[in-house]
Design a protein around this nucleic acid. Structure first.
Length: 269
DNA sequence: ACTATTTCCTGGATGC
DNA sequence: TGCATCCAGGAAATAG
């Protein structure tokens, strides 16, 4: 389930491998769910374009493209199970492959996504702008202001991509644990000091996770097919019933906004 | 304007 | 062994 650290890791890996390459031709599958722009529009935008900067915005991967001075962007959201693989054309085509870009270097860039929650789209020039603010760039006052007056549980607010972009279920739970805040706490009832602590926790967790190449749970791998290691640092996520690493109290799991939320009932208030 | 709930999708795990 | 059922969750759609 790629969140900000996994998407950052993948984008960095892809940047190393495909920057400067030219997309010679494109195949797009017939399943409609993965396409946010019409297939013909995606194909015509990508074909004969040179791949420039590859970067992350929230949970999106952005490929800056140019073709005869005309600029555009290819935007990829990996959803739950999406993968972008760079491989030789002879490599067997994986089940659930939805797009194949043939590159001038002789390799292919393939989009594979069994669950089809991922999305592909294109935008003219540098037009794509995800909602929300980057959690690693926002300053303390703006972070605190995001939650002012919100009655929703803090966990839901952290998952809301229109506020902060890039935080998903794992990093929301891990950040709340480090900040000592229960996931069900109403955002508006959290003091400025606690929010400042949460801000620090979010940044710390995301930076540590990026440094370890993300969390490999289910089937996440980076652009080189390697697993990340941050799952070994999880303190609450998927640890229901196991002892808190700080106080030994069993970790509890509740459902908030349809998502599993894990917390220590003693360390988090 | 907010907030809460439902829906989409498949593979792996679980239960009988 | 086989078959049904449940669960994972990001974000859009829907309902309140």
């Amino acid at each position: 389930m790629p969140e900000l650290p996994e998407v950052e890791t993948i984008a960095r890996g892809l940047a190393k491998r495909v920057t400067g390459d030219i997309i010679e031709s494109v195949w797009i599958g017939r399943k409609k769910e993965p396409l946010k722009s019409p297939a013909a529009q995606i194909a015509s935008t990508l074909e004969q374009s040179r791949i420039g900067h590859v970067h992350r915005m929230g949970k999106h991967i952005i490929f800056d493209l140019d073709r005869q001075k005309k600029e555009s962007q290819w935007i990829v959201h990996l959803g739950m199970t999406g993968r972008l693989q760079v491989c030789d054309p002879q490599t067997e085509i994986a089940k659930h492959t939805h797009a194949i870009l043939r590159l001038s270097s002789g390799r292919e860039l393939r989009f594979v996504d069994p669950r089809r929650f991922g999305r592909l789209s294109v935008a003219p020039a540098a037009k794509f702008d995800a909602a929300g603010i980057e959690p690693l760039e926002i300053d303390g006052d703006r972070f605190i202001a995001l939650f002012r007056g919100r009655k929703t549980p803090i966990k839901s607010a952290l998952l809301n991509q229109k506020l902060l972009r890039g935080v998903g279920n794992i990093y929301a739970d891990e950040s709340l644990f480090r900040a000592g805040i229960r996931p069900r706490r109403r955002a508006a009832t959290i003091t400025r000091d606690q929010l400042a602590r949460l801000h620090a926790a979010v940044k710390e967790v995301l930076k540590e996770a990026i440094a370890l190449g993300g969390s490999s749970v289910s089937d996440y791998v980076n652009a080189d097919g390697e697993e990340g290691f941050f799952q070994l640092q999880h303190r609450v996520y998927a640890r229901e019933g196991e002892p808190c690493l700080v106080c030994k109290t069993p970790i509890e799991r509740v459902v908030i906004a349809g998502r599993s939320s894990h917390y220590c009932p003693r360390c988090q208030k």
